[in-house]
Design a binder for these strands. Structure first.
Length: 652
RNA sequence: GCUGCUGUAGCUCAGUCGGCAGAGCGCGUCCUUGGUAAGGACGAGGCCAUGGGUUCGAGUCCCGUCAGCAGCACCA
């Protein structure tokens, strides 16, 4: 006969523990070990996430969730957001609450309140939060019927919560109470506020209710929380590190580019050193494309509106195009896209299947009217140069072309030291109706088979394609582990029809051409901006605008320094000479802050022995070296596109 | 575009209660001629974003405009 006082609890490692019926998850955790109980934030009972206070009344599987897991950390942060909400409720009258979830690196809560919160107020809110933590207030869960919940939130004047309730279909909902703060919330939460020790409020900003620009705008406070102080510190350090790498700051410090109010918003002025970097990239890009059978074309910056009418850009994107310019009664537009020009070149003669594939590439500068709030340094601008190309091919050739393209992606992203991940984005809900289901399917399958043929890992993002094309998006991970938008490969289902792009097949008849639209770098502006942050300004030798700086110790050595410089220059190495009237330490300092990979110190010793003393970014003070040996080493470094040593941040 | 914050020397920033515009870096001249992350002295450099208002008096307070920043929304 089974005892009804004990139940069996199965732990993740398979072991079974006997506990009295009605034991709480926390009690079980305590019986396993006080350490675990202390770190516990919630529990999973038979697969469902619940509070630690949950009583277990039958045989169950139990997992104790700690803040060391991603899930547990999310719970900790979510609980912190409630504490912040309580603090705000205490400090400001008549607050209405939006939502307050955990996010990637922390949490936020949205508030509707009369007074504007500024970042100066965050300290005060943080202090109130500390107080709440020391009060050790429990997170108390209550289960209410929808009707009761509605009257509750009505009585405390929380219209946003009522709106959320409208959409819940269950009969019962949870509310959590922490002190005087009540929230509609699925949970779970940590047992009480004393478990929150390591948090920080980060910023305050506006955010639309429910993410919709037509809805009211609330004030959002962002914060983060961690299980351990060390992790919080590490995170804050990483944020700082990212700030130091900000391409706008480094762009100014290294004199790479600037923007000017009088030139216009979102328009980049490339300085000589920035151009130097850009040209290395362009040169490399061109070589790789030439190797793969691309031909280079150029199309005008301005075109008659007719072509964008036909392409569909005007009906679809007019609000993001620059206004028309009227000449001789005809309206012209600054080009927002390179495709129409490439198509016209393709159509300048009859094309046989024997000519295909035709691959046209252009570093094409386009202009788009991005909303002012969207602009961000070089990463989001109004005038930019796409590394655009269009592949005209037959349906049979498509998978092979995709495969080739992935090889190109791999080559180029690898050269810059990016890790990446591919995503297959399929037909979205709202999509072009002129293309048949079959065409969507065939295009998507071709992309997929290209991925498989190349052997590239990918995941499917259902419905994330553009309205006119399924696509492969490649996302990059930079040295700080941050994600960037990378290459994109799109099978265009729109333009071949609109422009009637045809070729003559082996049956002697006209067939519709496949057009693949693709960019590897995206835009030179964004790519270079991203690279600056990726490398933190320490470019690999092949890209560095100033590869070598010669530092003569006194005036007596300038002549020798000039010889060294000129020899290097003759060898194709970008070299300058710092002949300022300063001490060597000063010149080394200045060469380092200017992020020059090689500093060559030349003094009495070097003049006599005909050497240079090398100080490199990778190797530090390396001592004397014969110039020819150094040149050989640098040439090799340039040729192999060697990445700087340890350019990955040590905070990772 | 929306909400909030910020505009002071080329850059980073101080400027108290409304009372003569400041520092460091950088730049120039001079001294110094030196050995691996900042030698010294002197000097130039400002319509305090901009237009209005309050005031005896505005960098400072109020309103508008412009620009930048953060987030949201947007991103062929």
């Amino acid at each position: 006969m089974e005892t009804n006082t004990n139940i069996s609890i199965t732990l993740p490692d398979g072991s079974v523990k006997k506990h009295p019926r009605g034991a709480s998850a926390l009690e079980v955790a305590e019986s396993i070990g006080p350490g675990l109980a202390g770190d516990a934030v919630a529990a999973r009972i038979d697969g469902a996430l619940v509070d630690l206070s949950s009583k277990i009344s039958q045989d169950r599987r139990l997992e104790i969730i700690t803040a060391d897991s991603e899930e547990g950390l999310g719970i900790l942060r979510h609980s912190t957001s409630h504490v912040m909400a309580l603090a705000v409720q205490r400090l400001y009258k008549g607050v209405q609450f939006g939502i307050g979830p955990a996010i990637n690196d922390g949490f936020y809560y949205d508030f509707d309140l009369k007074d504007a919160i500024s970042s100066d107020d965050l300290t005060e809110i943080e202090e109130e939060m500390e107080r709440i933590v020391s009060e050790k207030l429990p997170f108390r869960r209550e289960e209410l019927s929808i009707g009761d919940a509605r009257s509750l939130f009505e009585s405390i004047g929380q219209p946003y919560k009522l709106e959320l309730l409208e959409e819940i279909e269950d009969e019962k909902v949870n509310v959590y109470r922490t002190g005087d703060f009540v929230d509609l919330c699925r949970g779970p939460h940590i047992p009480d506020t004393s478990g929150l020790k390591n948090f920080k409020l980060l910023s305050v900003a506006g955010a639309y209710w429910r993410g919709s620009a037509t809805k009211p705008q609330l004030q959002r406070i962002y914060g983060t929380a961690f299980a351990r102080k060390k992790e919080l510190k590490k995170y804050l350090h990483r944020v700082e590190e990212a700030e130091k790498r900000d391409h706008r700051r480094i762009g100014r410090e290294l004199d790479l580019f600037s923007m000017d109010e009088e030139i216009g918003k979102g328009l980049v002025l490339w300085h000589p050193k920035g151009v130097e970097i850009r040209e290395r990239i362009e040169q490399y890009w061109k070589n790789e494309h030439r190797l793969r059978g691309y031909q280079f074309v150029r199309t005008p910056h301005l075109a008659s509106e007719k072509v964008y009418q036909r392409s569909g850009h005007i009906p679809q994107y007019e609000d993001m195009m620059y206004a028309p310019i009227e000449i001789e009664g005809e309206r012209y537009r600054v080009k927002p896209m390179n495709c129409p020009g490439h198509i016209k070149i393709f159509q300048s003669q009859m094309r046989s299947y024997r000519d295909l594939p035709i691959r046209y590439a252009e570093l094409g500068t386009v202009y788009r009217f991005e909303m002012s709030g969207a602009l961000h340094g070089m990463l989001r601008v109004r005038g930019f140069t796409q590394d655009d190309a269009h592949i005209f091919c037959t349906p049979q050739q498509l998978p092979g072309e995709v495969e080739e393209l992935l090889g190109l992606v791999d080559e180029i992203m690898g050269a810059f030291g990016y890790r990446y991940k591919a995503y297959l984005a399929t037909r979205p809900e709202v999509s072009l109706q002129t293309a048949t289901d079959q065409e969507w399917e065939r295009a998507t399958e071709a992309l997929q088979s290209g991925l498989q043929r190349y052997g590239m890992d990918y995941s499917v993002e259902a419905g994330e394609g553009t309205f006119y094309a399924p696509k492969i998006d490649v996302k990059l991970f930079d040295a700080l582990g941050r994600q960037w938008q990378g290459p994109t490969i799109q099978v265009d289902l729109n333009l071949p029809k609109r422009f009637e792009v045809k070729y003559i097949a082996d049956d002697g008849k006209e067939h519709e051409c496949i057009i693949v639209h693709r960019a590897i770098l995206g835009s030179l502006e964004r790519f270079v901006g991203g690279l600056i942050e990726h490398f933190g300004g320490w470019f690999p030798l092949w890209l560095a605008p100033e590869q070598v700086r010669v530092l003569p110790i006194t005036d007596d050595h300038t002549e020798y320094a000039h010889n060294v410089r000129d020899t290097l220059r003759a060898g194709g190495i970008r070299t300058t000479c710092d002949e300022r009237n300063e001490k060597t330490g000063y010149k080394v300092h200045s060469g380092t802050t200017d992020k020059v990979p090689y500093l060559l110190i030349v003094g009495e010793k070097e003049v006599k022995s005909g050497t240079v003393s090398v100080r490199s970014h990778d190797g530090g003070d390396e001592g004397p070296c014969a110039l020819e040996d150094l040149m050989e080493r640098m040439n090799k470094e340039v040729e192999t596109k060697a990445l700087p040593k340890n350019f990955v941040s040590d905070t990772d």
